[in-house]
Design a protein around this nucleic acid. Structure first.
Length: 636
RNA sequence: GCCGGUGUAGCUCAGCUGGAAGAGCGCCCGCCUUGUAAGCGGGGGGUCGCGGGUUCGAGUCCCGCCGCCGGCUCCA
């Protein structure tokens, strides 16, 4: 048999040769450094036989591509350490994840963060000796027998649930054997730079009705330097955390008296209003008409919409005069009422209705997270009432709108398409059409996306857009959902060209997700250094000495007249201190005025994060600031 | 909601095995009148998250509740 190497050369090998055999044939040093192999582009264990004619690539120790292998192997050492230290612990699964790995255990007694140190020490002790990872294919009965004997019920359950045709493999290092698909390193030797980072609860198979496990998170890198850099990056990212920056910059705050509900302070509300202004102008430009609907409704509305049955635990309900009411968790039923309030013609469609709608959802206490997940938030919502023929054009329009917003802020996003679930409403013809439209819209944008088969809502397929926070956590912001259900429930109709009544299709659309969440992402994205057009104070005038205050106030007044948010630092402090504090407040433009400037009729310009840029007439400053604001530039 | 952690001055934090609540920054007052990242001196400020308990004595130990942090689950 033969395989093809990345340089195009063919390598002849005996039948049944493994990845490691191939590496050995190339050179013994390469064989020693092999972590895994890529067969036709997919990562595979180096112990597996190679298929004839495959494209083969050796992935070496030190390659970023093999990091998941290193981390997975490290997770096994963690499990071994846990077995040594806590006899009777039940092991479950321990996969590599984006920035590390975890292993879920069921401990007889709860463990705390102090135990992470003990576990790490035991791992280091194990790693003092090099242990080979050996792979063994075993029969289902033998595998089952082993874990029954070891009293590992979770492993037994995993084996029982494996498809009948799937081979069962064990990996062993030292005295520890785990049910595992692999791939793994040749030995523990490359495991040097690792750290157990945190402890968390998790549910067996993500099911809250099953036993709660203890998850130990860790990470591993090929070198200590890379590990240190990673840990350092996390520390840096914490500085960008909007929950720290927001209160520090006086943007918003939280109070115990209303958990999960942000209080917007004057500077934060300025950011909010600028964002809202941009959003509503863009909506109008793209043919949306803005509405505003109540936040409290009679329960009958939620019975019509289906929320009363399906979503009630998440809603705030209340009784007024013996009537059931609820605060709205979504705006769609309100918009359906508006649509249904008059006879609609096909000539009225698409009818695009947008609302910055204040919604309340009773989120579980443990999931609240700064501005990212709150109980009271303002969705940048819209509903498009359309004919089935308009699905494609409107989906393209919505995608275009949303991506233009993300691009304005130079933010990266990830798109996901969710298709029909097994249980659903609407006939297959319209699902075909809808899924096709979403896919076409995605392809037209030319951006990569992942497909989550069967993950759509029962009422229609959707596209979700995720943005990433400072710590790499992903938050769903954009969501574009087709809906065949609500128009039915609200008995919505339009008169077609044929003079018959037809059912419209609805598109639910949020792009920012909510103003709260998006501003949270913005703060982290810019590390608080908001672009000029969003900055609460755009220019701060800094008098050198008290005698320059009047001059400074004139300058600030002129800036205000030009529509620029400005202020004066009137305190009797050194200019160095005033600058230091303006920098800390993230003010984009600092204008210094002293004797020289008074004489010349200028101001000295300093931009955030930069040095003295020299003096200019104030009119010139107003000119470029106005232009920068109009163009919504992200950096000056 | 669940698991683990955590809560001390406006902020960041120290406070050992229970024995008179502290520091730096901010704030207030005074001096300095200042040229591009923090001038000097003085002063005020705390029901130690809340409620019980143990103790001669609790910031410290125990129990309950609340908030926050890291996750699980869910979602904008």
């Amino acid at each position: 048999m033969h395989v093809t190497l990345p340089d195009g050369k063919q390598l002849d090998l005996p039948d049944g040769a493994t990845g490691l055999d191939a590496a050995t044939a190339i050179g013994p040093r390469l064989a020693m450094a092999t972590a895994a192999v890529k067969v036709d582009g997919t990562l595979q264990d180096l112990r597996l036989p190679l298929p004839n004619g495959a494209r083969l690539e050796i992935v070496r120790v030190g390659d970023a591509e093999a990091l998941p292998v290193l981390r997975h192997s490290t997770a096994h050492v963690l499990a071994e350490a846990a077995r040594h230290l806590y006899p009777g612990v039940k092991i479950t699964i321990g996969p590599p994840i984006d920035n590390g790995f975890y292993y879920d255990f069921l401990f007889a007694e709860p463990i705390s963060e102090d135990d992470l140190v003990r576990l790490e020490d035991e791992m280091r002790r194990i790693l003092k000796t090099e242990h080979a990872y050996t792979r063994a294919e075993v029969s289902r009965d033998a595998a089952r027998e082993r874990f029954v004997a070891e009293q590992e019920p979770f492993k037994v359950e995993l084996i029982d649930d494996l498809p009948a045709d799937e081979a069962i493999t064990f990996y062993t290092q030292d005295d520890f054997t785990d049910l595992c698909r692999g791939p793994h390193l040749q030995s523990t030797k490359p495991i040097k730079a690792f750290r157990l980072t945190s402890l968390a609860g998790s549910y067996w198979r993500g099911d809250a009705t099953r036993p709660q496990l203890t998850r130990v998170y860790g990470t591993a890198f090929w070198s200590q330097a890379e590990l240190d850099e990673h840990l350092h990056r996390i520390e840096e990212a914490k500085r960008r955390d909007h929950r720290r920056l927001g209160p520090q910059l006086g943007l918003f705050q939280f109070h115990d008296e209303s958990p999960g509900a942000p209080f917007w302070l004057p500077d934060g509300l300025t950011v909010w209003n600028e964002l809202y202004g941009h959003w509503r102008r863009e909506n109008r430009r793209r043919g949306y008409r803005e509405v505003r609907t109540p936040i409290m409704y009679d329960a009958s509305l939620w019975k019509t919409s289906g929320h009363w049955d399906k979503y009630r635990e998440n809603m705030y309900t209340l009784q007024v005069d013996d009537q059931d009411y609820a605060l709205k968790p979504m705006n769609c039923p309100a918009h359906c009422l508006i649509f249904g309030s008059e006879r609609r013609s096909y000539r009225d469609l698409p009818l695009r209705m947008n609302e910055a709608g204040l919604c309340h959802r009773n989120e579980m206490q443990g999931v609240l997270h700064g501005l990212m997940r709150v109980r009271s938030f303002t969705q940048d919502d819209a509903h498009l009432f359309i004919t089935p023929d308009q699905i494609l054009d409107e989906v393209i329009g919505v995608m275009d709108f949303a991506t233009s917003l993300y691009e304005l802020f130079e933010m990266e996003f990830r798109l996901e398409l969710s298709t029909r679930p097994p249980v659903r409403v609407g006939d297959d013809a319209i699902w075909d059409r809808a899924e096709q439209a979403l896919q076409t819209a995605l392809e037209k944008r030319g951006v990569p996306f992942v497909v989550n088969e069967g993950d759509g809502a029962f009422y229609g397929p959707k596209i979700d857009a995720h943005l990433i926070d400072a710590l790499g956590r992903s938050w769903q912001c954009g969501t574009f959902q087709l809906d065949f259900n609500l128009p039915e429930r609200f008995d919505l109709a339009y008169t077609g060209a044929d003079d018959h009544e037809h059912r419209p299709v609805m598109i639910h659309r949020a792009m920012l997700g909510s103003f709260e969440r998006f501003i949270g992402i913005l703060i982290e994205h810019y590390a608080g250094d908001l672009p000029l057009w969003l900055a609460p104070t755009q220019a701060l005038v800094l008098p050198i000495a008290d005698r320059h205050v009047a001059n400074a106030e004139q300058a600030a007044a002129a800036l205000e007249d030009a529509g620029l948010r400005s202020g004066v630092d009137r305190r009797t402090e050194s200019i160095g201190k005033k600058i230091a504090e303006a920098e800390a407040r993230k003010v984009p433009v600092m204008l210094v005025v002293g004797d020289r400037e008074a004489e010349q009729g200028t101001v000295s310009v300093r931009r955030r994060g930069r040095r003295d840029l020299g003096s200019q007439p104030l009119a010139e400053v107003v000119g470029w600031m106005t232009e920068e604001m109009r163009a919504k530039k992200v950096a000056g």
